[in-house]
Design a binder for these strands. Structure first.
Length: 415
RNA sequence: GUGGGUGUAGCUCAGUUGGUUAGAGCGCCGGAUUGUGGUUCCGGAGGUCGCGGGUUCGAAACCCGUCACUCACCCCA
């Protein structure tokens, strides 16, 4: 049997209402916060991701779905959304349009990782990007949006971790200090961290290996090396969160994995998932526009892993508010008259269905029951001859005679 | 890329120290006389026991290989 590709998941009919619910909440909320939706391609030139995410990150090094186009240019299925949004913003000069500086998006992302609970090779994100300002209150807005999104979905026991990793300059100084501190301790670190020492020393702070956590306990804290501007920015963000009564936990070891982050970084975790406990994360990326040859443009955004959110949803949102009318047509004349009625009801905007295989009233009602119909409309030869139908309430079993002429109006009047 | 766990019906799972035609529940299809569903009763369909090899008189079970799924590491949302 043909199976789906490893790490890819079908969203089956019984799950799609949950997805629709999440998307509706996200769209409504983002719009309330002044964001507009942008829809960008699912693949881009490989160079875009290589330049924005960072050449030494795992994503670029080994997780991208990259393939040659027919003309030989290298294309890549998008591993995240921010790079594509920034590219689109530059390409269409959206920064010049005041209504296009706060954007949100939905869609599938692709990373070639080993699948695991809450991690797939094709996964879906909801993300927002606020462009063009580094005012600390925009950071607060973005985080507040993320926090309110999860709260509207009823997610419990979440923790907001927040940190500032400073500007590129701040970090330059800090990394020197950090390396100086680590140099004599190198032999104690895990193999991975020994490699990180030269590639991405910041990540060593984030290492989960106990030995590394222990040896870096006394490591210099990045906050201490922040410039005055960065430090004030960070405290302003924290004060803003406090003012909005959003609880946070400062985590000096929170280092985002993508190179383009700067200053504010944050993530929200849940204790009810497996190892992949981050359901939403983001940060400021003031240098990304320039890295993509755009004008200096501060920006901040987040991305939510929707599969992980689905895993946390307890309520099953069976949005099925529109009553279903089942057309039970049988007999030589009744069957064909019923099919015409079915079409008439649908043209009038009524939710209606039938079962072509069922030919006896018993079989038809059984189908009506299985489809969960609120009403059945019984139309046999007797009814067809008298130009009527029987409108049966499936729950109360009450039936009434209605003329074919009036049935549509009657249903519409009672909906 | 590395390690652990698991593969029996559409789904969830039984299956004795290796022993005849491999089972249950749910689901699906049908029947219980006339044009009335759900409950009940009865019947039916559906399985190369993941795949390939080996041991054996005999393998769903034991051994080897392989694939898939899954959890974890790495990393990330």
């Amino acid at each position: 049997m043909l199976r789906s590709v490893k790490g890819l998941k079908d969203i089956l009919p019984h799950q799609s209402s949950q997805w629709q619910h999440i998307e509706t909440v996200a769209r409504t909320l983002a719009t309330q916060f002044g964001f507009s939706e942008i829809r960008i391609p699912i693949f881009e030139f490989t160079e875009l991701y290589a330049r924005s995410i960072g050449g030494t990150t795992d994503i670029v090094e080994k997780e991208m779905y990259t393939f040659p186009d027919r003309d030989g240019s290298s294309l890549t299925l998008r591993p995240e959304g921010t790079a594509g949004v920034v590219r689109a913003v530059l390409e269409h000069s959206l920064l010049d349009s005041p209504t296009s500086r706060k954007l949100f998006y939905f869609g599938p992302m692709f990373r070639h990782e080993r699948p695991q609970a809450g991690r797939y090779r094709q996964f879906h994100q909801f993300g927002v990007e606020a462009l063009g300002t580094d005012h600390p209150l925009i950071d607060v807005e973005v985080i507040a949006l993320l926090w309110q999104f999860f709260s509207l979905l009823g997610l419990k026991d979440l923790t907001l971790h927040i940190n500032s990793i400073g500007t590129l300059d701040d970090r330059g100084d800090y990394i020197q200090r950090l390396k100086k501190f680590l140099t004599p301790l190198l032999p104690d670190l895990c193999g991975n961290c020994q490699r990180r020492y030269s590639t991405n020393p910041l990540r060593i702070l984030d290492c989960k290996v106990p030995i590394c956590q222990e040896t870096t306990k006394e490591a210099p804290v990045l906050i201490d090396d922040l410039s005055e501007d960065s430090r004030i920015h960070f405290t302003d963000v924290l004060d803003g969160l406090t003012a909005l009564e959003i609880p946070y936990s400062i985590n000096h070891r929170l280092v985002r994995g993508l190179d383009y982050y700067s200053r504010t970084t944050f993530e929200i975790t849940s204790p009810h998932l497996g190892a992949q406990s981050t359901i939403g994360a983001g940060g400021r990326y003031d240098g990304l526009f320039q890295a993509l040859q755009g004008p200096p443009t501060p920006a901040i955004g987040f991305a939510v892993g929707l599969e992980r959110v689905i895993l946390l949803l307890t309520e099953h949102h069976s949005i099925n508010p529109v009553p279903l009318f089942f057309i039970a047509g049988f007999g030589a004349v009744g069957k064909s008259r019923a099919f015409k009625l079915l079409h008439e009801l649908r043209q009038s905007g009524i939710r209606a269905d039938t079962d072509h295989k069922a030919n006896t009233l018993k079989a038809l009602l059984r189908s009506a029951d299985k489809l969960g119909a609120e009403y059945s409309i019984i139309l046999g030869d007797d009814e067809a001859n008298s130009e009527t139908v029987l409108l049966r309430n499936m729950q109360t079993k009450v039936q009434e005679i209605v003329t074919l002429k009036e049935i549509t109006q009657k249903i519409l009047a009672n909906l």
